[in-house]
Amino acid sequence: MRRWLLTAIGAVIAGFYLFPVYWMYASALKVSDELNANPPTLIPHAPTLAAFRWIFERENIAQFMANSLVLSGSVTILTLVLATGAAYSLARKKSVWMDVVLIGVMLSQVLPPPLLVTPMFVIFRQLGLINTQLAVILATTTKTLPFAIVMLRTTFAQVPVDLEDAARVDGSSRTMAFLRITLPLARIGYIVIGALVFLLAYGEFVYPVSLLSKKALQPATVGLYGFVGADYSDWGNAMAFASVFVTPVIIVFMLLQRRIVSGLTAGALK
């Protein structure tokens, strides 16, 4: 009984919380003069798929989405690979140098991309990477890497050192103990942090718009800004575009959430 009461409360919280998300979907289905109706209409009076039809017919959304997925997928992998070593050593080794690294990692994410992108452009030109998705992946990773390092560090810090020590007594090297013992125990952290890194990268806009000039390479975020014009923004179509942009990700995350939870109930660290 009490469990179902909690379910009801949970549903109310989620429902309340998701209202803005609902509003995005509802707006995508409204005809344009209903978007600003007074009083506002909670449920579209005459729902129409016109905006979606527009998106699929006039905008190359499949291409945009594919680019977004390639970019954020690559950023996620690169970030987790680069972050692992740094996070682990920061979790296990205390020294002034490690402090310096940690402070540097924190500082590296302060400046907003619009200020960073000009000098970064120079770097990528030296590397001959302008107009390649690789440049965007490398640039976006500078944004996600500090986050991943800091959060993975806490994940590793939560794994008892005793377990590694035990493995080392059994003859494993430090590195092998990390790979065999700590890494598997940190999998929840990897899933959650990887998911968040993916989302961070999925929403990136400034780097792709600055480093890529071919529309065929641009991710969906750049397409979305196409609806925000000099003097007119086409919110109806923009909301439809955004809906198409986020829905697959929301679905994947709902499914993923289940996996995370099964990891939790299995007793993560035992």
Binding site: L18, L199, G203, T221, L224, V246, V249, F253, M254
Partner: peptide, 12 residues
Amino acid sequence: GMILAGWILPPL
């Protein structure tokens, strides 16, 4: 899982 949806929307 549903609540995470809020974080997925683009800032715009």
